[in-house]
Design a protein around this nucleic acid. Structure first.
Lengths: 187, 187
DNA sequence: GTAAACATGTAACAGGTTACATGATTGT
DNA sequence: ACAATCATGTAACCTGTTACATGTTTAC
């Protein structure tokens, strides 16, 4: 389960309340993982029982701050260094592509055009995020910037692929057979 | 829910039993979605109740074949053409990257090297798949090849990013501050 | 005073995985 | 005869989302 490790990672940076952790999922971590408060609060309770985190005194407005324990840091390190088979990619976007053949060529090409536009919008959003985040020289901000760059490259790749795929579909529509025109990777 | 639509998409190609659909998830669709037979069988029952698919007679070994109905085709078309906000990306890979700062620079760089290697393995797997699948000129095979190309491009992007990120981490380790050396996108 | 933000929790449900359970047919 | 593959189903459990529910503090 990744949620526990996401929480450990956030708490490794500094102690925080469930409320604050929820906000961090909404902002900094949103492109990698997400979680609602209704999942986070019970999870923190279980992690405290397990000894990975420790709950502090109850503060103002019932705020309870959690801090990571040594056992928690050990578990975080174990999770980061033990190679685990990654869970299968689930992509609704790609699922749709598989079934685009059931649409008319015009509809399919339009769908791919929209996909390219959406990817470029996502890219613009990441650029804007980069501009407005006050990055410092800390290790965690550094990794945040590496992750952001990954997002940029992935969004760019998706946009360029969608352009290419739309071209392929349109070329196939114009000619007798799309297959003849498919550019395949060089042998 | 995407499972229903994945099943509709597969049945749009040809009628099939739950068993056959399960196999198709394991093979052709595995890079886009996955589902176990224990999820597929009850889902087909519900879809039949809803009128999106129709169950045929029970054949040998209790085999029951489902075919898509007109209502099912309508729903598939609606799903493909109605723009739906894509569910948030969940990536355990990127989640780990966010927390690499808790490791030593050597460990972090090694992690990114492994990530690059894994991506190149995935790329090789996709190339092998392309070679051994008997593609024909049908629309569904065409879309399969477009999706495969997307996988190739994404894997390549990930590998190149991981190489770059590992360099950044190592450069930061060698120098006083990693930030000075981070290449940022041009304004 | 009142709206916004802080702060925490529970319940019901949907989606998905693992494990349990059974039986028929085909190939060797 | 035995193993592999075909073929279907249920139950328990885990993860995650939406909705319900409550009370405090700060800023205007």
């Amino acid at each position: 389960m990744s949620l526990r490790h996401a929480l450990l990672g956030l708490l490794a940076h500094s102690p925080a309340s469930g409320y604050e952790l929820t906000k961090q999922f909404e902002v900094s971590l949103v492109h990698a993982w997400s979680a609602k408060h209704s999942q986070i609060y019970p999870e923190l309770t279980r992690m405290a029982e397990q000894g990975w985190v420790a709950a502090g005194e109850e503060g103002a407005r019932g705020r309870r701050e959690y801090r990571i324990t040594d056992a928690g840091r050990d578990e975080l390190h174990r999770w980061l260094t033990t190679a685990t088979a990654d869970r299968v990619n689930r992509s609704e976007v790609m699922l749709r592509v598989f079934f685009l053949w059931t649409l008319s060529p015009d509809e399919a090409a339009a769908h791919l055009d929209r996909l390219a536009a959406t990817s470029r919008q996502a890219l613009a959003g990441l650029d804007a995020l980069d501009d407005h985040v006050p990055w410092d020289a800390s290790g965690s901000d550094l990794m945040g910037r590496l992750a952001l760059e990954q997002g940029r490259r992935t969004a760019t790749t998706m946009a360029e692929w969608a352009d290419w795929a739309a071209d392929q579909v349109r070329a196939g529509h114009d000619a007798r057979s799309l297959t003849d025109r498919m550019s395949r990777r060089p042998a």
